[in-house]
Design a protein around this nucleic acid. Sequence first.
DNA 1: CTAGGACATGTCCCTAGGGACATATCTGAG
DNA 2: CTCAGATATGTCCCTAGGGACATGTCCTAG
Lengths: 183, 183
Amino acid sequence: MSLRHGLLGLLAEGPASGYDLARRFTEVLGSIWPAQHPKIYAELNKLAAEGLVEVESEGPRRRKAYRITDPGVVEVKRWLTDVDVDHTMRLQPLLRSLFFWMMDTDELQRHLEAEASYYRELADQYRDYAARKDRGEFGYSEQTQSMRVTIEAGIRLYSALADWAEWAQTVPPAKPTPPHANG
Amino acid sequence: MSLRHGLLGLLAEGPASGYDLARRFTEVLGSIWPAQHPKIYAELNKLAAEGLVEVESEGPRRRKAYRITDPGVVEVKRWLTDVDVDHTMRLQPLLRSLFFWMMDTDELQRHLEAEASYYRELADQYRDYAARKDRGEFGYSEQTQSMRVTIEAGIRLYSALADWAEWAQTVPPAKPTPPHANG
DNA sequence: CTAGGACATGTCCCTAGGGACATATCTGAG
DNA sequence: CTCAGATATGTCCCTAGGGACATGTCCTAG
């Protein structure tokens, strides 16, 4: 139920169309909160029906830009302060890591190298983003300040995963002889 | 579609009942791959129907222990090596962080402190687990070696998030006067 | 003037997951 | 003997999300 509040939050920065929002979701939020355009349009219609957003303008190509309403702002703030954070994390790579013992050493090494470079690349992307932000490319509004904080989380998270994948390559595959079974 | 392979992987370590598996999922995997018992039982029945697992024994209280079959083992290995890793990450706390600018400073500080201690606690839990593993409490099988690697990821991930939440508390709320607007 | 491509919004279906509810079985405390 | 509580397995419904498919609109290159 966070797509709803994600949209409201983005609209709190200023009016935007479903298309704009879909682009922002894939560009900025792609790796931490994926959302497909069909869901976005559907949710926008629901939000409009509930009066949390309203059509601000209609443009060419049936474009509809939405604006957040006062009740909409109230709702995002309520969500931010009164609703418990959902800490659910569902990371398939970590689930897989439980079963590394079933892979043979070569495969595992290849896998871990691929994972490491995947995470390293994402971390670098976020780092670039942060550098551009710090250079002032996106201005100095409070919104971009928050974005900077989100980006920092991306950097740290993906760096941690990259380091982990590299570290895992150095872990000895298994103990062939348990300590109590020698002799 | 990973619950399926999670169950197969756990069963590859040895026979277990749905109840056992549910416990393992909440205890070890709770924070990185949540799964409710109804889904687990349903999936086990499907897996049994497809011949990837079979009933190993029936115990008291209608207990059914399952054992992985050869095709089951083949299927986990296929998943581990041939199926692309799903890197989807959906972290509500990061989505929320995009909207920190809508919270007032006090609320935000309280929020970040709560987040930091939440993550710190989880990191500590994983660290304890790792220490127990390193002391040999869980033996030295290849399975526990893999578990150790998974735990390490938990430690690093949650430490990174805790550090981030602490760091975020030191970030100035916003720039009241943009650099080009002074004078 | 016409066709390809970007812009823009949607429908539809299927599966995964959350969570409330139901039920059977066994053990141990009183 | 009885009842609480742990063990153990399920049904059912609802929502969220993934992804294929459909459609309309405008611009621009040829």
